[in-house]
Amino acid sequence: MSNVTLTIDGQTVSVPAGTTILQAAQSIGAEIPAICYHEACTPNALCRNCVVEVEGARVLVASCVAQVAANMVVYTRSPRVERSRRTILEMLASAVDLSEAPDIQRMMQEYSADAQRFPQAERREIPLIDDNPMYVRDYSKCILCWRCVQVCADDAQFTFAINFSGRGYETTIGTFFGKPMPATTCVFCGQCVGVCPTGALKPKSEWLLEQGLSIDQVFAATRQERTGAEKRTRTWRRA
């Protein structure tokens, strides 16, 4: 494949055509903070924390999806970029519980983002949902990265158990008419839990341990629920 030469932060870089700006920047050691990007998922470029400034472009460009072009001039930490990243992180902290998202916390330090920047902000506080033996859902920690929805759908599992509820700031991840997971098409493969970056989806056993249960108690509790869930599922199927 042919190579493309561009400038990133004053440095000349040559990379294969089709490379994203993010990859090209990584190749010269320029760190770009990406939140929603995950190699197993179709990129949606929705967190916008990876934006960079490209000379001649009207707005900033999401480096996780934008491909390099010949003679492109890219700035990964211009003042516009810094302001956007800092503000996005501050807004995220004003909305969501990031206590179990160490990567994002590190970014906040790097960009001097103030978690208290937005006083009186309405937070997304949603009661934890404990409706199945495999995992709990704590959407107060959900950053709407879409990964769980995508792995449940055509990025991996093709079960289509979860999707979105609401719109805009009120968006949450939900099921058909808010049904508990055992009453959906969910096959409890655990893929969504695996890709969740913030602890919003968490294995039930881990959560129970955090609640102070002993290993034996956790085992007893989840076994009881597992068998119960099987029965529930069977009845539901027959109905």
């Binding site: 949606n44 807004m91 004003s94 937005f118 979105f164 805009g168």
Partner: peptide, 25 residues
């Protein structure tokens, strides 16, 4: 705008809400 943001990208999903809250006060 807070009502009509689709909620896909963070700047607008959260920004329209914060902008509305600040302007209200």
């Amino acid at each position: 705008f807070a009502h009509e943001s689709c909620g896909k990208c963070y700047p607008c999903q959260i920004g329209t809400q914060r902008q509305y809250e600040i302007l209200r006060r």
